[in-house]
Design a protein around this nucleic acid. Structure first.
Lengths: 207, 207
DNA sequence: TGTCAAAGTTAGCGTCTCTTACATATGTAA
DNA sequence: TTACATATGTAAGAGACGCTAACTTTGACA
């Protein structure tokens, strides 16, 4: 046996072709967008034949799902990491979550659009579950900051308001032509501003 | 000459095939999404051969651009109509704009995603201009409500905050699986709430 | 060492796509 | 009526793509 743990590719038996294909797929979607992604391209980038993926994935959609799930897992861990440096129950944690959300959209626009720029019927249960995991983080933090005993209606309302704003800010910031319409404002300042305004207990309409 | 103004299709000389193709394209994108749209499908729906579009459009992309521009024009007129029933300078006008924005996304999700769910390099000048037209409406109204003498930095900031929120609310509301995470809150209530909070002159950060 | 499953490759089928070249029908205007 | 520009149809090219079947290499293990 030669070296199996180095990244040298001998011939057959790639070592972890599945991971390599997922990474190639991710790169290509980031570079050219989902509508110009093809399995053939991923194979060329990974340096394997066009039939190879079908030993690891059921079909093209299955490859994309794998990439999305991997990206969502990364996002979740990044959020937790960014949040936990601030004291529990502090508004800084919320702001860190928002900053991370916008940052993720800017770092991985292809993945972000893959998750949200579509409307092809209902999502797969796995993806929906991963999304719920992420949203749970937000709701729990909002509950703590507002001093609510769990996920109350008020928590749900404020969380959704925050999500709407941060999500919209992410989408617009991703596109330079839209971002400059806001005068190239620092998203962090906007997040600070909006977080404060959304979470405060003032309302014109009853909760 | 037979009847030219009725919608009866004799054979040759459709009357306004260009408009018919635009409408077919619009319908198909709404029904199946942009990634499953094909020129052939549009031809089948319009009842013409697959070569017919190329007498009216340069290529597939040109057809889509025509559909987007038509949709943006519709959106602009709807916004103006929804707004002008309220007194000038009133906050109700802003809320009407927001409601219309969300409503448009719900009525024409395909067109909405076509405008925003992409990131294929810079947009065409025509589309960007149409987008600026629409955004100008918002900025002018925000300036009036805030009593600012034109498009000041403050107006730009508040407009962008509003846009971010309304845009995010639209994107999330379009997808039932996301909308229900907000507890199926009435978007109108959220708009009223957020409009008030965003436009008020209180801030934690200096403008 | 021999066997076998796993993980590649080669070759190709079938389909759909956008687009063009050329033929044909139609309306208009002299 | 005739000529001509415009609008559509016919037919086909050229290529990409997803996916499968069948073959080959490899490494692990009895």
């Amino acid at each position: 046996m030669t070296d199996t743990m180095t990244s040298e590719k001998t011939t057959y038996h790639h070592g972890d072709l599945r991971a390599a294909l997922v990474e190639a797929t991710r790169q290509l979607i980031e570079e050219k967008g989902i509508d110009h992604f093809s399995v053939s391209d991923a194979c060329r980038r990974a340096g394997v034949s066009t039939a190879a993926p079908y030993k690891h994935f059921k079909n093209k959609g299955d490859m994309i799902v794998a990439v999305v799930l991997q990206s969502m897992d990364r996002h979740k861990h990044e959020m937790l990491e960014a949040m936990t440096v601030y004291p529990e129950g502090s508004i800084e944690r919320i702001r860190a979550l928002g900053q991370n959300y916008v940052g993720f959209a800017l770092r991985e626009p292809g993945m972000f659009l893959l998750r949200f720029g579509h409307n092809d019927g209902p999502q797969l249960p796995e993806i929906e579950e991963a999304g719920q995991d992420i949203y749970d983080i937000v709701q729990n933090e909002v509950a703590k900051v507002l001093g609510e005993p769990g996920i109350t209606d008020k928590v749900r309302q404020r969380s959704f308001m925050l999500w709407s704003f941060v999500h919209g800010l992410s989408m617009l910031s991703m596109n330079p032509e839209f971002a400059e319409k806001g005068g190239n404002l620092d998203p962090d300042l906007l997040l600070q501003e909006i977080g404060w305004r959304v979470l405060r207990d003032e309302a014109t309409v009853p909760l």
